[in-house]
């Protein structure tokens, strides 16, 4: 039985701006990432790591080339397809991007509800559990502005993980975490990959990450090694 890899990228080009200001960021990227793999995307600052991540996460329209995620071609895809793919992906943004009007718990519930596979009572229970796991059990009913930067980021991580997504895309997820909680988050990601076959794409992070034994990652891959960097 051959299973298509959850991420298959071919000849991907991406540019920002128009006319004379047009600047191409991604040049002919091609890669294939198998299921349950944890891949770290590396490359110099400004090389388009975040752009690649948002393209794979269906958050940005593909301009040229082919991006297949979870069996769906994203280049020129209809909104319904993009929504379907996004629902299956947990995305941890560089900024926390929490909804200010909602409490931490409600923010996390949003992540579980969109998956559409949990019952109503289950959603709240799961959100509670995961917030406790990221050490925010006491601050569940606080609004984002009442939380510190690191706590907000942990809420955002909980929101991405709560739905047990088929794929996790993380843009410097532990940047604002201390060593201990950064480590816990990474361990949680690893167990997701192990137990649920979640494919994980990470952008490089702070030292908390590198203190873990390298063997604990399935692979470290420089996506940009195989492509041009300007």
């Amino acid at each position: 039985m051959t299973v298509t890899a959850p991420i298959v990228v071919h000849g991907l080009n991406h540019a920002f701006g128009k006319g004379a200001l047009r600047k191409q960021i991604l040049f002919d990227i091609g890669t294939e990432i198998p299921q349950a793999e944890i891949v770290i995307v590396t490359g110099p600052s400004g090389s388009g790591k975040t752009t690649l991540l948002t393209l794979v996460g269906a958050l940005r329209s593909t301009q040229e080339g082919s991006v297949q995620v979870l069996g769906q071609e994203l280049c020129g895809a209809k909104p319904a397809i993009l929504e379907k793919v996004r629902k299956q992906i947990g995305f941890i943004f560089q900024q926390h991007n929490l909804l200010n009007a909602l409490t931490a718990l409600q923010n996390v519930e949003l992540g579980a509800r969109v998956r559409g596979k949990f019952r109503h009572s289950e959603i709240t229970e799961r959100a509670r559990q995961i917030l406790q796991a990221v050490d925010l059990g006491e601050r569940m009913n606080h609004h984002p502005e009442q939380l510190s930067g690191g706590q907000r980021q942990r809420v955002a991580i909980a929101r991405a993980l709560v739905g047990e997504p088929a794929m996790l895309l993380a843009d410097e997820p532990t940047a604002s975490l201390d060593k201990q909680s950064g480590r816990e988050v990474v361990e949680r990601m690893q167990s997701l990959a192990r137990e649920h076959g979640t494919t994980i794409l990470l952008l490089p992070m702070t030292t908390a990450f590198w203190t873990l034994p390298t063997a604990s990652f399935t692979s470290k891959m420089d996506v940009f090694q195989r492509s041009q960097i300007q």
Partner: peptide, 14 residues
């Protein structure tokens, strides 16, 4: 706008 975009990024339909 940021929050609406976040909802869309999570996969909520238009």
């Amino acid at each position: 706008l940021n929050e609406y975009a976040t909802l869309r990024a999570l996969g909520y339909p238009n």
